[in-house]
Design a protein around this nucleic acid. Structure first.
Lengths: 220, 220
DNA sequence: TAGTCTACTGAACATGTGTTCAATCGATGC
DNA sequence: GCATCGATTGAACACATGTTCAGTAGACTA
């Protein structure tokens, strides 16, 4: 029931916080109980409240910590160059519980989710601008909004991982899922899905004239 | 507190079910209370349980109903031709609470979400195949997976609507949000985001050789 | 050594919520 | 008119869970 041992040199506070991050990430804030978290940290429920004031206070601490950890790991990645995809994958693996926490926050709509999404957006936007300069990404006069949409698709895809796996007929683990998902999204992101620009043109005309396009604009 | 009036000719059972669908869609299954739903339907909590056995039973009924309603409205749309975008928009508006219910199910991971996602996938896949035949969608040897990914992006984008709106600097209502979102996604879905096929090529090589691509495969 | 302070516990408390149940009401059939 | 049966209610129950609190132990200080 309790996941600590004698070699755990984290402070009690840190143990509680880490256990909470794991638990919140697994079942979400509302379904995680203070008693569960306390047991996982090897302490009593009273102590959790003693240190963090309330369950909400505990969440705030976790939020701040996760936001800071994400920021830290990105700074590290940038500083170290991080061109090795295996190293990148390993670090993602190490941050798995942080990502789970983030995805749960996104589901439940906590304030931290907004902060993390916004931070992620700023970072991605810079990366996109850089990639445009390097000729990797198509130039666009609408890069800002495109980045927002792509980011939402990326995280949205993660949120719906289970459903995508099911209709694809594979398991939900990354090893099985990733190749199929990556392949399909690469194709879409490289060539688009529309055979020509008719929908885009119709949209442009609509935006200019205030006349609605003659057909639905997104059959996907 | 109670949203019924003398002109409401729905049966009590239907009123409870409809109130539950609205409430589940607003706050999710776990946060919606039987007492709330009962009050909204203008009955006592006891009656809800009398008719549906349990809160879980109520959800099952709602699930079945929503699945059937979505199916019905689509059959109707197909049968009636439904080429008028205004009519389509109006019907979507009328189904707003059903869509909210679906999105909440997606968030909370209810069985109905899986059913609806799968049904939606089958339908979209047929539509995609048709669109390829008509020359609207690019042909692909991977249409099945691409459809799954696009569907996840579409629903995922809806789930994260609030966050997208915030980083775009607009309100979350469709009127403000839709033009920006549609414009950006149309551009991506028409032209892709990558300037060339280097990532796709790298991926192909990886898939063939088992050698990982030299850089990260998705800067978005 | 005495005092104080902090970490920590376990029990108790308060509340929200799903569920049960006896009682009532109203319609329907005999 | 009477009986029966389903719809309906309101109160009570059971349980989970956040929170409080008195009390204990150990460490640190004067």
């Amino acid at each position: 029931m309790c996941s600590i041992d004698a070699t755990d040199d984290r402070t009690t506070l840190a143990r509680i916080r880490d256990a909470a991050i794991v638990r919140f990430g697994e079942v979400g804030f509302s379904k995680a109980t203070v008693r569960d978290i306390a047991a996982a940290a090897g302490v009593s429920a009273g102590l959790v409240l003693h240190h963090f004031g309330s369950k909400a206070g505990l969440r705030e601490t976790c939020d701040d910590y996760v936001v800071a950890e994400f920021a830290r790991s990105r700074v590290e990645a940038v500083e170290s160059g991080e061109t090795d995809p295996f190293a990148a994958m390993a670090s993602v693996q190490a941050e798995q519980h942080l990502m789970r926490y983030f995805l749960q926050s996104l589901r439940e709509g906590s304030p931290a989710a907004g902060r993390l999404f916004a931070a992620s957006f700023e970072e991605t936007l810079r990366l996109m601008e850089l990639s445009v300069e390097q000729g990797v990404i198509r130039p666009s006069d609408n890069l800002h909004d495109a980045t927002a949409v792509l980011l939402a698709w990326q995280f949205g895809g993660m949120l719906l991982q289970e459903h995508v796996a099911r209709v694809m007929g594979v398991g939900t683990d990354v090893a099985e899922m990733m190749p199929r998902y990556a392949c399909a999204s690469l194709e879409v992101l490289t060539h688009g899905v529309f055979a020509d620009t008719r929908y885009e043109d119709a949209w442009r005309e609509f935006a200019a004239n205030g006349e609605p396009p003659p057909t639905e604009e997104d059959p996907a």
